[in-house]
Amino acid sequence: MSDGGEKMTSVEYIQHHLTNLCVGADCESQAIVKLNAWHLDTIFFSVVLGALIVLLAWRVGRRVTAGEPSGLVNVAEMLVEFVNKQIADVFPKPNPLIGPMSLTIFLWVLLMNAMDLVPVDLLPEAAKLVGVHYLKVVPTTDISTTLALALSVFALTIFYGLRVKGAAGYIKSFLFHPFGKFLVPFNIVMAVIEELAKPLSLSLRLFGNLFAGELVFLLIALIGGTLAVGLAALFWLPLQVGLDLAWLIFHLLVVTLQAFIFMVLTVVYLGMAHQEEH
């Protein structure tokens, strides 16, 4: 259990863990969009992880040579080749932004997801010692993060769509697809829905997977917290450890897979924006 002093119910425990450290006037509001509310923990951890990427990138970039690569440079080159292969599979023409962006998405999302593997009580309890009472450590369990990434990608698909097809061509792509020229109004509705589905599915998929994963970790953590009292602990604690380990191993897959899916879909969406015709 996370609470030292007063007793906490299971629901309170979970709710507490799923509450961000928020500052701003709208924090307590129930609105869906809160413009004056900042999730400091989400920003903090995502920036720290981003800084970690930059630090590693800087260290690797310093040692890059055209000669024989070694150590971490090898890993980085493998990643670059891997990302490049995904892009080459989809992209009709080269684009200087898509490569670094895809790599950034993969690394950043991977690391943010990986925060899920940190024991659920470790960082919140540590934060409590320095007076921070709410802490959600996985930035991708905050819809704002996943939507930020997805909207950035969405904005770029619109930008490249306009640039490649021209304004007229871009608008035309909404008019005559999928049902031909006799159902233009219906086509517009369909095409708009199709376009909007891209950032929504992109962000909600990542958010849903990681949120659910975190929730299961919390439920497993509850076993030890609520049931392991006295002798019963001999039974419940090993069960908790076993379940936690199993979910952890399974979650390794989810963490990597979701980062990969996000990256591949980004490449696919941007590649679609680059195609002249359907």
């Binding site: 961000n20 928020c22 701003g24 709208d26 129930q30 609105a31 869906i32 969009v33 809160k34 413009l35 004056n36 509310a37 900042w38 999730h39 989400t42 920003i43 995502s46 920036v47 981003g50 990427i53 930059v54 990138a57 800087w58 690797v60 970039g61 890059v64 440079v73 980085a76 080159e77 670059v80 490049n84 932004l97 490569g99 670094p100 962006m101 790599l103 950034t104 690394l107 950043w108 930035p139 905050d142 819809i143 704002s144 993060t145 939507l147 930020a148 990434l149 909207l151 950035s152």
Partner: peptide
């Protein structure tokens, strides 16, 4: 569970991170 201004911070962080990754990793490596 709501969308907060955090989103803008994350977009900014994302853009900066892309730039840095390109500057220090992708560019030199490729």
């Amino acid at each position: 569970m709501s969308i907060t201004a955090t989103l803008f911070a994350q977009v900014a962080a994302f853009v900066i991170l892309i730039w840095l990754v390109n500057r220090f990793l992708w560019g030199p490596l490729t």
